[in-house]
């Protein structure tokens, strides 16, 4: 049975009607028209759908819309062409990613990590990225980009 929900996404309140068990991802993509979070697995195994909920990176493909309690940040709302988030800027400068389908997951995970503390070692970064998939194999550029962003955010 559908229920009405009011959720805040990228700082904007939205009211929508949905099955409470429906994962947030479908609300973001179909009701709100977000492009950043992608469907990859629906199993929280790849990270393509990652958003930041109350400061924590979560997998929106398994996060029920009914569980949203605070602001949801998506890749769409992270930055703009004129004012990209430092992590986005670093990914652009490094040309991290190839097809870029997965890239939102890496960017949102790295953003949540570095906004808490940008002073991160290589092994801390790799550990935080566990579970994220990139089929194009662009891990080297992604790691370079995250380290570049961390440097920016420290300064």
């Amino acid at each position: 049975m559908n229920k009405t929900f009011t959720i805040t996404v990228d700082g904007v309140e939205h009211t929508l009607s949905a099955d409470p068990t429906m994962p947030l991802l479908y609300a973001l993509r179909n009701d709100l028209g977000k492009k950043g979070p992608k469907f990859g697995c629906g199993l929280a195994q790849c990270g393509a759908c990652t958003v930041i909920h109350e400061g924590t990176a979560v997998r929106s493909c398994v996060f029920p819309v009914a569980a949203v309690t605070g602001n949801v940040r998506t890749l769409d709302g992270l930055g703009t062409a004129d004012n990209p988030h430092p992590v986005q800027q670093a990914f652009i400068e490094e040309e991290a990613g190839q097809c870029e389908y997965c890239i939102g997951g890496w960017i949102m995970t790295a953003t949540a990590l570095l906004e808490k503390d940008p002073d991160r070692s290589d092994s801390e970064i790799r550990e935080a990225l566990a579970g994220l998939k990139c089929r194009c194999g662009t891990h080297m550029a992604i790691l370079r980009a995250i380290k570049r962003a961390a440097g920016q955010m420290r300064s």
Binding site: K38, L78, T80
Partner: peptide, 16 residues
């Protein structure tokens, strides 16, 4: 040429 639009989530993928 394609990279910024994909990282800023403005590019329309097939899925959109």
């Amino acid at each position: 040429k394609d990279i910024a639009g994909k990282i800023l989530a403005t590019t329309e993928f097939l899925h959109d």
